[in-house]
Design a protein around this nucleic acid. Sequence first.
DNA 1: TTAAATTTTTAGACTAATCTAAAAATTAAT
DNA 2: ATTAATTTTTAGATTAGTCTAAAAATTTAA
Lengths: 223, 223
Amino acid sequence: MKKSLSLTEENYIKAIFQIGTTPESNVSTNALADNLQTKPATVSDMIKKLSHKKLIFYEKYKGVTLSASGSKEALKIIRKHRLWEVFLVNHLNFKWDQVHEIAEQLEHIKSSELVNRLDDFLGNPTIDPHGDPIPDANGQVQLGPSKLLSEMTSHENGIIVGVKNEDPLLLQHLDKINVRLGLHIEVTEVNDFDQSIQVKLADLGTMFLSEKITSQILIAKNL
Amino acid sequence: MKKSLSLTEENYIKAIFQIGTTPESNVSTNALADNLQTKPATVSDMIKKLSHKKLIFYEKYKGVTLSASGSKEALKIIRKHRLWEVFLVNHLNFKWDQVHEIAEQLEHIKSSELVNRLDDFLGNPTIDPHGDPIPDANGQVQLGPSKLLSEMTSHENGIIVGVKNEDPLLLQHLDKINVRLGLHIEVTEVNDFDQSIQVKLADLGTMFLSEKITSQILIAKNL
DNA sequence: TTAAATTTTTAGACTAATCTAAAAATTAAT
DNA sequence: ATTAATTTTTAGATTAGTCTAAAAATTTAA
């Protein structure tokens, strides 16, 4: 039986998964160091180790990509993270901006039995409190394509399905201006000068959103 | 702000707490090595470290005892362990014999907010699925009702919490045979003929106690 | 297309936690 | 009360993960 990953290894695998959006994209040593709040030299060492374990593909100076088994591990961790977030919000009454840090710990608990029972307990949710999809027990993700609000043009519309990152300050701001997941949104105007956007939201009427915000909001046609 | 304990440190503190029933009892290096599945040399080093951090009291060759802050930490960990066990059994339908290993991991999750919300979610239980008491947020333990040692049967165990009356002769006798409050006690055999009982006491090994004595000693469920 | 800037890797060192083997201290026994 | 057995500690090494400083490789730009 193959030994399970260390906490550190899991965090690297997860970071590689999250930085590399598509299967093709490479992830640089510096990007990883940045993401994991560590130093490039450290990352360089760990890359060798993970590569040796066949969890990632690696070419000197060329960056890394997850192997099949690496992706599988990443999806397991992400599944756990997002299921625990659902638990924290839906059952322990945490706010959506309070759960990320706790889930960062809970995602490392080892027990597939636990994860699957938790999944059932929660009613097999398909998205987490931030609108991100939850991989199923086989690592399969189901969700239609989404795009950034900042990429939309006038008169385009859709449903707010997620935020790109979980920065608590962003989440709190969205709360304050009543921007919520699931809301229908329509772009009424795009200002070329600063890329700010005017939108019409379900009941809330029109409002302006800066590029800093629109570049973090994910829109899809449906759930 | 004082840095939080490492996983290893937490496990040592917990083991010390669980081996040493009363504030008076010492815990030997070997006992700890045994309990933690490690080597005495390792324990010896860690004892120095924890002692330096004022979490335990330590005298060379004399064993260790938890300090006030050490006990506080231990109770926090035990509280988490037992609350998670309640969650696993009551809400995820685990059997009571399946939850210990998972709780061993969950007990190290750092977030008092999480623990307290979990406590509320579970309905502020006072005992875990194995009947062990759950310390409250202040580390206070609600000790279950005590019963007479003479009412116990084989393999039952608990802690000596009191004597029924204060007959000086009884107390002196108990002193002489080293039976003290706080000691962990386990019934190994009950003799139907005269109701005398054979018990195993924390460090003192086994001894026989007559009905005259057992009918005076109060036992409660252990910590 | 060389020089400059950047990225990545190597080299060497550090800390925490662990081990084995051996020495030292304590306790038990003859 | 010495000797024997046990317990505990020291000494020295090992592994995982990390760091800084410097070297090497690559990319960018003049």
